[in-house]
Each structure stands twice: as C-alpha cells, then as structure tokens.
Design a protein around this nucleic acid. Structure first.
Length: 961
RNA sequence: GCCUCGGUGGUGGAAUCGGUAGACACGCAGGACUUAAAAUCCUGUUCCCAUUGCGGGAGUGCGGGUUCAAGUCCCGCCCGGGGUACCA
C-alpha cells in the first residue's frame, strides 16, 4: 500500500518496527574504517510512576538530532539511554502500598521505554544500564571500595592507596604526611606500631576518601527516619509536616573536599555554559585569607581563626565562637558558665525551623574571657553566637564590626565597640558597616595609608613573619554524605569485625539487596535492612545496613555504557580509550551542584587510579531549559461562610483578597476552557464545573460564585440573562507535574500529530536552553510544514513526483543555503532556527515547482535528523534500498550561493531610505556616483553634498548629511 | 544581599562579526475553492499619522554615552527567571 496523504501513524509505526528488527542503531566499540567517534549523552531519567511528560524528551530530541547529524557526517556515534532506578519515590510508594520497589521500578521502566520508543530515538538499547541492576551496582560498590582504600596525598595532589600511607606510618609516623582530610594527632612510627587495630582504624578514617564521621542529621521522630535537606522545609518534614530536629549520628562520607582545588581548576578545561560553571565555583566556594592564632588569657592553647580580611585586623574588637566550637562547652569563666551552658544548649537543640525564622533575631552570650590582640595587645572579649557556623573555617572569627555587616549587627545589639579601619570615598555610615573592598587603611599602625589590596598582603607578611598565622585557602564545599537509612539503594559493601569496618572482598561483589517484607523505617533511625538478622549477621562480622544515596550510581554510568556487559571490570580499558570523554552531555541545570559535581569527582578519582585517560567526564555540556506547564486553579475561600465552601471567580477578587482570604485549588487542566490561549483568559463553564465536582467530590455542595451568577448543587442563578455559568480561573506558569494536574503527555501528541511533529515542534518552541511554557498553539504550523514537505514528493494520487530533471540555480541556492545554515546551527545547538530554515526551504522549493530528485533527496537527508520517520518513508519511495540513516550528509557548496549583484540598503544618517542593486565587484567610486544620482537620495540631499559616504562592500551604504 | 541569565509585535521567537529590526510560525482579518464543513491556497498584519496614490514619524524595559551606523558595545537604573545565602 502506498499512501497518498501524509499518514504519521502508519509511517512511524512502520519505521520504528523496521529500525528495531534491523538493530539499526547498534554501535560497535570501534570501526574497521577508522571513523572518528562521537559520544552524545543524555542525563538518564528516574523512572517515576507519572511517566514522561513533554518536558522530558526536549533534551533527548536535541541530542538525538546531533547524534543523527554526526552519524550522517561519518562519525561512529555512541548514544545510549538507561535508568537512574534507585531512589526515594519508589520506596515511598512501597511503604504506602506494600509493592516491592523492584516491581514498581520495573513497571515504570517499561512504560518509559514505550514512551521513548514512540518518539523515534536512535538509542542503542543493547547498552541500556539500570543503576538498580546488581550487575551494574556491583561496580558502584567496587568504586566505593576503592574510595575506602585510598587517601588524598596533598603533596602529589592525587589519591594514593591506603597501604602506602600505612607503610609511611610504620616508618615515620604521620608527621610528614600532608593529606586532605581531618586533622589527626601527630604520632611517630613506634606509637603507630603500638596502637590497637581499632585505634589504627580510627586514625585511618581521618585519611580515607570514604569514611565514617559523627554528624548532625535531620531527624524526624514521627516518621522514625533521617531526612535529606531537600526533604525538610522550614524545619518540618516535607511529607506530613512533622517537626525535624538535629541529631548526632555516625554516617558515611566521601571526601570530595580533597578534590576542591582540582574541581575548581578543571572548570577551565571544559565547555560548559558560564552560569553553570559559576554555580559550581560558588558551591566549591574557594576563599583565600589568613589563619591567625590569637592568644587567650589564662591558657596556653591559642584560638585559631580564619579571615579573608587581614587588612582589617586592627578593627577587630571582639571574638566569636560557634556554639558547636569544641571549646564552647568548657571554656566560659565561672560567673558566665551557667549562661553559656544555657545558650549552647538552646541553640544546639533549636530546630532548623527556629534557626531559619530567627535570622534577624540576634543572640549570643559573653564567655567572660578575653583574647589578646596580636598587634595591639588589647583585650578582646570572646563571645559565643550562632551566627558563626561551626562547620566553616575554624568555627571562630575575629569580629570586625566596622567592616562586616554581621559583626556590625551583633556589636550594635550588644553595645560592643566599633572601630573604623578602612576609609572609603563616602564618610563612614553610622548605621551600617562598610564591607566594600576599596579604600585606605586608617587607625591601623603599620598598615595606615595602604589600599585594601596592599594591606591584605602586608598584613599577611607580618602575620607570617611573627609566626602567629599563615596564608590559607578555605573551601565552602563539604564532604558528601554517602549513607542513607533506606532500603532502595546500593548496599554499602562493608563488614564490621569487632567494630572495625572493612570492605568485602571483590569475590563477594555484588552484595545484593536482600528481599524484605517491610520497607518502613525501623524507628531507630536505621535502614529497614537492620531488621534482617539473617542478612546482617555473617560469620565474618556484621554488615553495614546503610545504603548509598541516589547520586552513587549516576556518578559513573557514562562509563558503563561503553562496555555494559563486562563482568571483569566496570568498563574495559579499550572501550574507555576508544570512547573517551562525553563529547556532548545534555540535561537539566538542576543537577549543577549535585550529580555534575559528584561525577567530576569520581572521574578524577578513577583518573588518579590510572583507570581513565581523562579527568573530566563531560567535555561539553548543554542545559536544556525546563518546559513549564500552565497551572490552572480556582479560588477557594479559606473560611467557610454559613458552613458552605465558597469558590469564587478570579475577576471578582482584589489582589488583597486573593492574597489573604483565598487559597488556590489546582484544577485538572482538561476541564478548562480557553486553556493555553494567550489572547483570552481561561474559564470554567457548566460542563467544567460538573466535571470538577465529580473529580473533587468534597466540593460538590460548594457555592461557585461566577462572573455572571451563582452555581450550586447543579442549579445556576444568573445575575442577568445568561443561562450558563462562567467562572474565570487563575492561570500561572509553573512546573509541569502530576500534583498540579497540568501534565501533557508526549504519547497524546504522537498519536494526534506524530513523533516527527513533536520532535520538530519541541525544537521550534525556542532556544534549547530557555525555559518555556508548553503550549500547543503553533504545533499546527509544524504539522502543516510536514504535509507541505510530503507534497514535494507525493501527489494527491500517491504518485512519486521527483524526476531526473536537472536542478536549476534557484533550486541549488535554496538547498545549499539550507545545508549551510543547518550544519552551522546544529554546531551551535540552535535547533529552533534549523526548523525555520526547513520551512523557508520547503516554501521556496514549492514555489519553484522543484522536481529534481537530486535536490529533493538531499533535502530528505538534511531533514532526517529532525524528522526521521517521514525521511525514511520518502527515502524508500525514492527507490533507495538502504536506510536514510546510512546516507551521507550533502556537501555544502558555497558556489551556489554566490550572487553577482547585491541589493544594497541605502541609508541616510543610519536610517534605511531606499535600496539599489549593484554588481558585487563594482568599485566604491562608481557606486557612490550612482547612489548620489538616485532620485530618492537626491530628495534627501536637497541639492547639498553629503558630509560623508560610507560604503561597506556587500553590506550597506550610509550617507551622512 | 550576592552570583547568573534574560527583557524585541497580539503570541512563540529571528537578527551568528556593530550594518535593511520583526525572519519563520501561531493568532487575527479579508478573499478563493465548497451545498456546507474540514483540508488547501492567496492577500494583509510592529505602532501612530496620512491613505486615492505617493509618503512621513516613532520603535527592541528606562535614562545617558561611544559610533557614519547600536536589539547588539560602555555607564547608571527598573523588572523577571534560575542559583545561593549568616561561608568571616
């Protein structure tokens, strides 16, 4: 059967089947003809129960276009897809329904796969990975083991095996070891040899890249579990809204901070957009300054602080310790002791909520003790306050109220002295600190007269000369928590023998997740695994019951695609050498400081181990913007009136009422009239209201106050003559999500318009990186374009139109303009403009009545990365026996674009007034003569000579008069 | 607050190196075909003035500047999105 009309359902189904049967998208690690490689990667999805919405495929479509384009251009392209399949939602669902997360995950993956298949991607599915597959997480566990067995040597600036460290300890103790880790007490070789195994391990934990540490966690008593920061909103659990407090727990961590400098430097070697790099830089938060030790009255131990402003040293008028500071509890003088204890107790037990809502409330307590200013010898009172963070720097600061706003607020509140030491252009403000870094030092002894920049250096020199401190670089970045007290994650392959953690031998990997019947938290803060004695208790010790976080599996998955079935290593050296870095990585910016930082960290670590030839995973990265949805909601009065729920039309409410007296109830957007319309407000009519109360029966007796009357219990009492209610709804742009009832499913679009239209339309919406609301207005234009394209090849009786007719100059110009434009635009990821160019080309060729098969075949190839199904169909109808995927990208030939005349815009004082055509090789003098003779120009000159004539060959002519 | 990206017709957007602002599409208006509808095709569509025709003026968030020429570069604001926040 040969259809005459463009029938997307038939064509797309047909070709998806053929592609699958022929395994057309399978790639090998290497080619006989030595094609160059190209690795295009998408951030793999978490397969949620909601399925894909139209936002998900945006990036996949873009990377698919690039992959297909590269393939046509002779590259061997790796373009895989898989699933980030461990995670909380599946576990949450399991707790609620009792269904095993493995089963729901499997179901969700099947659904995702069906949805993805409908869009016509060129994924090599034989390489699919799933992070929850034991054959996969075996290697996640293996990498964890390596992290456990390595430490970071600051001298060599890389990770080294822990055995080397032990060897050093045995020889000379730890005095000469420079590492990036926690401070360990000095010891000598003899002492090391006498330590018990437990003591040794305690020390090694301070060096290992995977280690355990006491830390405060978000503990929720009601849920009986530990929560991630993201799960805590305003001090309450996001789910349920129960109070969350801080609790000390021993947790696994990865020492990502060891790599902070390299993570920072590496950013200069990769092509990511600036805002993303900036986000990572901020997150790593390098700051350079001075570590200075202050003497404390009445004790020999000094108080170390960190400051980035040593130039303001003479402005320090007091010191502040964090409540978490190790000295805090025991430090206070006798008469202040009780107050200090109380304050510390209060602030440490304060829930997150109190601390958050209390930012403006200045609190602190004097310890009754003093530090000595190293240069002036003055007494500086030492305070404890929770505006100083325990986890940053040394947990103590020298307070310079004149030049730090936080110190200033504190000083003013407690009436502490404020001494100005930097003079800016403006007079010193009395009601705020002067934090800026320009000005001149005053009241600062040997720093007087120096600029801030000079003074910082001078002060640092002096501090080092007097040996009271040194230059230091600090990072904001924290070590990454790696343990979750959850079931649905990779088990951490550790056994505790007499309380000493040791990794499982490789032969016992993967350590598979045991089956459990209850996924509920144990209530003790341990994972559900802890309840399984048969699993935790082994002959060799007790198993770790924490599991890994979601980001473990995703930190290295791009390597596994290279060699997904390898049972010996995570990926063979050959495969890694062949594919190398990811050439193009596409995904959302929301992973900027999580996944993208962690995978860079793991890559650098594996590089240090000599297992990778590169230390940055993603050479080029593009963030696709979010596709937002339009959220429709109806206003519900917070308080009932006469026991009735009041739902009111948006146009009848003032901004104040909306803000204070009403809440928005999201409405399933299918019920809404004029949804997505930009020129008319959305509303609900009689049918919408009926659907709404069926859907949300709790509102069935509600009083709906409409624009034109009141509708209640199915009866409408109009204000005027209308017989049908009209109730305007609130529309706002926001996330597309199940909970906002505004999800648009790609399957529906594929059914109605086809995958090719969906692909083109998603690209046509606008620049890839911009966020944009989904709206189907406009999708018809793209669909129309495909039908127009079809009609170049097939007439209304189904006959194939192209002939051997020789292409004319106009045909070739159109074609090559397109080829040039599309290849340029794909290179710079400007895919929306590609679609416009296709439309222009098809419009032109239609107008030219082009029937040249040569031209039209090339047109198919150029369109095929964007709309592969229609391309295959027309390619086949043109008598080709191979797939269009195996075609070659046409060679762009500029000669067809060259014109021998140019239509110049003639502007007067920069404003275009007329146009004139000149041969491109005409000399300027000749052009000028003709321009001045032009009627229109004459009119503007009014008989005078122009002041200046600018002729830019091939571009523009401008006359200044 | 800080960092970062942006602000162009009724709408999505284009203008890649400082050189004809509004490509392409949606929507809208008018027309052709049709018994009618769908589909398709044609014409118009930044705004204002003029309109019989020719024209003229303004215009890329606001105010300045550089330049023969500015959406594009510089300075100062305003607004919006994203990120981040007692990080000393």
């Amino acid at each position: 059967m040969s259809e005459a009309q463009y029938n997307h359902r038939f064509i797309e189904h047909k070709w998806q089947q053929i592609w699958r049967e022929k395994e057309l998208y399978k790639v090998e690690n290497g080619t006989r003809d030595g094609k160059p490689k190209f690795y295009a990667l998408d951030m793999f999805p978490y397969p949620s129960g909601a399925g894909l919405h139209v936002g998900h495929p945006l990036g996949y479509i873009a990377s698919d276009i690039v992959s297909r384009f590269k393939r046509l251009n002779g590259f061997n392209v790796l373009h895989p897809m898989g699933y980030d399949a461990f995670g909380l939602p599946a576990e949450q669902y399991a707790i609620q329904t009792g269904q095993h997360p493995a089963k729901t995950t499997e179901d969700n993956i099947r659904r995702y796969r069906q949805q993805l298949d409908r869009i016509g991607f060129s994924f090599d599915w034989s390489r699919e990975v799933r992070t929850c597959d034991p054959d996969y997480y075996k290697w996640t566990q293996w990498i964890f083991k390596q992290l456990f067995n390595h430490w970071f040597n600051t001298r060599s600036n890389k990770a080294e095996h822990i055995d080397n460290l032990v060897a050093i300890f045995e020889h000379e103790g730890n005095i000469n070891v420079q590492h990036s880790g926690d401070k360990a007490d000095d010891f000598i070789a003899e002492e090391w040899l006498e330590f018990t195994p437990k003591e040794r391990e305690k020390i090694l934990q301070k060096y290992r890249l995977a280690f355990k540490k006491e830390t405060t966690v978000n503990w929720c008593e009601e849920l009986g579990t530990v929560l991630a920061n993201e799960e805590v909103k305003d001090g309450l659990s996001e789910r349920g809204g129960y109070p969350v407090i801080k609790k000390k727990m021993s947790q696994w961590f990865l020492r990502i901070t060891a790599y902070a400098p390299r993570l920072l430097d590496g950013l200069n070697t990769i092509e990511w957009n600036d805002s993303l790099k900036e986000m990572q830089r901020n997150w790593i938060g390098q700051s350079t300054g001075a570590a200075i030790d202050f003497n404390v009255e009445g004790q020999t131990e000094k108080l170390p602080i960190f400051t980035t402003r040593p130039d303001t040293l003479f402005g320090a008028t007091f010191m502040v310790l964090a409540p978490e500071h190790p000295w805090a509890k025991t430090f206070a003088s006798k008469d202040q002791f009780k107050d200090v204890q109380e304050y510390i107790g209060r602030s440490l037990n304060r829930s997150e909520r109190d601390r958050m809502s209390d930012v403006k409330n200045i609190t602190g307590v004097f310890t009754g003790r003093y530090a000595i200013h190293p240069f002036t010898g003055q007494q500086l009172p030492i305070w404890i306050a929770d505006y100083v963070l325990g986890g940053y720097g040394t947990g103590a600061v020298m307070a310079v109220p004149a030049h730090d706003s936080r110190d200033f607020d504190f000083a003013r509140h407690f009436k502490l002295p404020i001494v100005q030491v930097i003079k800016g252009d403006e007079p010193f403000p009395g009601d705020a600190s002067y934090d800026a870094k320009d000005g001149t030092c005053i009241n600062s002894d040997f720093l007087n007269g120096l600029s801030v920049k000079e003074a910082i250096n001078r002060a640092l020199e002096e501090v080092e000369r007097r040996k009271i401190g040194k230059r230091q670089t600090n990072y904001r970045l924290r070590d990454a928590g790696f343990g979750r007290q959850r079931y649905w994650g990779e088990p951490i392959p550790i056994l505790y023998k007499h309380g000493i953690p040791s990794p499982l031998p490789d032969s016992e990997l993967p350590l598979t997740l045991p089956d459990v019947t209850s996924f509920k938290p144990t209530g003790t803060g341990e994972s559900p695994l802890a309840a399984l004695d048969t699993w935790t208790d082994t002959d060799h010790g007790k198993r770790e019951t924490d599991t890994m976080p979601g980001w473990a599996g995703s930190s290295w998955y791009f390597l596994r695609y290279m060699d997904p079935d390898n049972e010996q290593v995570f990926a063979s050296r050959d495969a890694i050498n062949y594919w190398g870095q990811v050439d193009l990585y596409l995904g959302g910016a929301e992973h900027a400081t999580g996944h993208l930082l962690y995978s860079r960290f793991w890559t650098k670590f594996l590089y240090d181990l000599g297992m990778l030839p590169f230390d940055e995973p993603f050479k080029k990265l593009v963030n696709q913007g979010m596709i937002q949805g339009i959220i429709e909601s109806i206003y519900l009065r917070k308080e009932k009136i006469d026991g009735e729920q009041i739902l009111k039309c948006a146009t009848l409410l003032s901004e104040e009422e909306k803000e204070n007296d009403f809440v928005k109830i999201p409405v399933l957007v299918d019920f809404i009239r004029d949804y997505e319309k930009t020129d008319a407000p959305s509303y609900m009519d009689l049918q919408s209201l009926k659907l709404f109360i069926d859907w949300r029966p709790e509102f069935q007796n509600g009083k709906f106050i409409c624009k034109n009357g009141v509708w209640q219990n199915g009866i409408f009492e109009p204000n005027g003559d209308d017989y049908e209610p009209v109730l305007f709804t609130a529309s706002e742009i926001g996330k597309m999500s199940k909970s906002r009832f505004n999800v648009v499913n790609p399957d529906d679009i594929c059914e109605e318009y086809g995958a090719d239209t969906l692909r083109l339309y998603e690209m046509f919406l606008g620049p890839l990186e911009d966020a944009k609301p989904w709206s189907t207005s406009g999708i018809d234009g793209v669909y129309r374009f495909l039908r127009k394209f079809w009609k170049l090849y097939v007439d209304k009786d189904g006959n194939y139109l192209p002939t051997d007719a020789k292409p004319d100059a106009a045909n070739l110009k159109t074609l090559h303009t397109l080829i040039g434009k599309v290849q340029d635009d794909i290179d710079r990821m400007s895919l929306n403009t590609c679609v416009s160019s296709f439309m222009i080309a098809v419009n032109e060729l239609t107008a030219q009545n082009c029937s040249s098969k040569e031209v039209l075949d090339n047109l198919i190839v150029v369109l095929s990365p964007f709309a592969p199904h229609i391309a295959e169909e027309l390619w086949e109808r043109g008598g080709h026996s191979n797939s269009v995927v195996e075609a070659r990208w046409p060679r762009f030939q500029e000669k067809y674009l060259i014109e021998n005349t140019k239509n110049y815009p003639i502007s007067i004082n920069g404003k275009t007034r007329t146009q004139m055509e000149f041969p491109v090789d005409m000399d300027k003098a000749e052009i000028e003569k003709l321009v001045l003779a032009n009627d229109s120009v004459q009119k503007w000159l009014e008989g005078k000579a122009p002041k200046k004539v600018i002729i830019v060959p091939g571009r523009i002519i401008n006359l200044v008069i």
